[in-house]
């Protein structure tokens, strides 16, 4: 059913770890799925849940938040805040008719280019299997038909 579906994914990557891991994957010429569009923030702690919802509202099928490993945050503990916010957001998402699996939080350090590539590919595949994000109304219509 999802053959040929090309998911749109927004990645919020922190400036110091995950964004640099993506740079490293680039300089190492690692190839990965082209679906994730990266928005840079200074810290994963800046990723307001509203930004994630805004991405879904504007057509994203998935959102990937990337931060430093626990204990490694450039700003001491922004990644812990990101973790708490993401967990809470994931609990709320079903109320909007959005599967919680569409939001993923990953710790990827600046030296983990390979891991970045793998996460990009895995998450894209995961969203591809979930299919396009459909609004509650669309789902109702589909169910009626």
């Amino acid at each position: 059913m999802n053959n040929g579906f090309k998911p749109s994914i927004v990645g919020f990557f922190c400036n110091w770890c995950t964004y640099l891991a993506a740079d490293l994957a680039g300089t190492s010429r690692m190839k990965y799925a082209p679906n994730v569009r990266v928005v840079r923030t200074m810290c994963s702690g800046r990723v307001d849940p509203q930004l994630v919802l805004w991405a879904f509202r504007n057509g994203a099928d998935g959102v990937l938040v990337g931060g430093c490993h626990p204990g490694d945050c450039h700003y001491q503990e922004g990644n812990y805040k990101a973790m708490r916010r993401t967990n809470l957001l994931r609990k709320m998402l079903p109320q909007f008719g959005i599967e919680p699996e569409r939001v993923r939080l990953e710790w990827i350090s600046a030296s983990e280019g390979e891991r970045l590539r793998d996460v990009m590919n895995e998450f894209t595949e995961q969203i591809r299997r979930l299919g396009p994000l459909r609004s509650a109304a669309t789902k109702k219509e589909e169910a009626a038909a």
């Binding site: 927004v10 928005v39 923030t41 200074m42 810290c43 702690g45 800046r46 990723v47 307001d48 849940p49 509203q50 930004l51 805004w54 991405a55 504007n58 994203a60 450039h74 700003y75 922004g78 805040k81 916010r85």
Partner: peptide
């Protein structure tokens, strides 16, 4: 300049230069 206060502020009063809400919302769009 980590911006965690911006993410936490419930009324949008905290903002971060170069990473203001409007800027990031526009970028996501």
């Amino acid at each position: 300049g980590c911006g965690t206060c911006v993410a936490a502020c419930p009324s949008g009063a905290a903002q971060q230069n170069l990473f203001r809400d409007e800027q990031l919302f526009a970028e996501v769009e």
